[in-house]
Simulated assay, not measured.
Amino acid sequence: MLLASHFEEETLPTVLLYGHGDVCNGEQHRWRDGLGPFELIQEGDRLYGRGTADNKIQHLINLVALGLLLQANGKLGFNIKFLLEMGEERGSFGLREFVEANRDKLVADVFIGSDGPRLSPTVPSVFLGSRGTLEFEMAVRLRDRDCHSGNLGGLLADPAIVLAHAIASITDQRGRIRIPEWLPNSLSEDVRAALADLPPPLNDPDWGETSLTPSERVFGWNSFSVLAMSSGSIDAPQSAISGVARAVGQLRFVVGTDMQDILPALRRHLDAYGFEMVEVSQIDEAFKATRLSPSHPWVRFVCNSIKKTVDKRPHVLPNLGGSLPNDLFANVLGLPTIWIPHSYAESGQHGPNEHALLSIALEAMKIMTGLFLDVADHASGAIMAEEGGAPLDE
């Protein structure tokens, strides 16, 4: 982890920035000809390479904007702290302990980060938290060897079939969750109102909760996914009943979900459906769900700044559909958290052919430079608004 700071005056507001320098596996074999995960290649508006969208270019934009202001003005007009970690893609191991142990070094007035995608490539987005995530393995281990499917087929239980039925019991055919404890209680009218005017994200119309809009499904609700399944060898199948079947599941959840009861509730559900033989174990650390009110003064300030700089009113999301260690900044440090993403949904992050759009990067440079200038120009007003004084947009 790297913690850097630029200090000017104690009376000025302090902005905490964050980024993660680690990336997902390169998976060279999945990239198309002429591209590679660790070679930076430009094709028109696209800049290809692992980490271009997630997440190196995003916090690089923010740091370059700060550098340009320092170069031009000799000062920022506020204080900066920047935290860089190298484990976000695997659950940010150790970050919680670091933040809790270094609260005094991380004291700030506001947290501003950049990660994740815009809702639309042509319109800036601001999101104020993130869905939590918990990954777990489900395994059916019936025997320590494979058995001939002809001689013993119909006599021995097939762990893959057992596991498939166990997984199918978790949702209906539309993917609607059947475990009551896995459903949130936080899709309030103000959250629905905040999501009402957003353009619909990419979606299958016959998937998910029928009573919810696409935006409500991804930003205001929980979703269960099967990330991987394994039984036998798909590349070299044998005429045998496997002894073991495994799957990795994931629950993405919003505020209003009891995170501590996710796996116990799954255990109760499987037992009730007769799947006592399915083992359940957690994988990696879980990210907690967070959400800042869209009416918070810092939100108004950031949105007004973006509108002034690029003449576009940003889409405001109560939380990201993905997951980030935002609870450390929101709950442990007690900061208002604002994320301004510099990527877009079709960037290919976590997959082959990951890329950033240079047009977004250019606009993002303007947005962040303008925002930092506005923070400096309204430094005293920002502090007053945080203490209950005049709103930041006044």
Rank of each mutant, 00 (worst) to 15 (best):
D45M: 02
I383R: 02
F287K: 05
L60V: 00
D393W: 11
V299I: 05
S186H: 12
N151Y: 13
G381A: 03
N319Y: 01
G232R: 03
R174E: 15
A196D: 09
L2W: 09
V302H: 07
T210C: 10
G34H: 13
L373D: 08
G154R: 13
S92P: 13
V126T: 06
V244K: 07
K288W: 13
M384W: 13
A240P: 09
G150T: 08
S295C: 05
F111V: 09
G34K: 14
S281V: 11
V110C: 14
E363I: 00
M229L: 13
A194V: 06
A247F: 07
C303A: 09
C24I: 05
G381H: 08
D377Q: 15
F224Y: 14
A376E: 05
R141D: 12
R174F: 01
I383V: 11
P237R: 01
P205G: 07
G44E: 12
S186M: 04
D33E: 15
P294H: 09
S120Q: 11
K75C: 12
W31H: 03
G334T: 01
L128Y: 08
R131L: 02
E386T: 01
D206A: 10
P124G: 07
Q58G: 05
N326L: 10
H165V: 01
L263R: 07
L202K: 07
T290R: 02
P391C: 01
T309N: 10
F93K: 15
L335A: 04
S242I: 03
V140W: 01
L3F: 11
I383H: 00
R300D: 15
L3G: 07
F372D: 14
E346F: 09
Q42E: 06
K366R: 11
G36S: 10
E285M: 12
E209W: 10
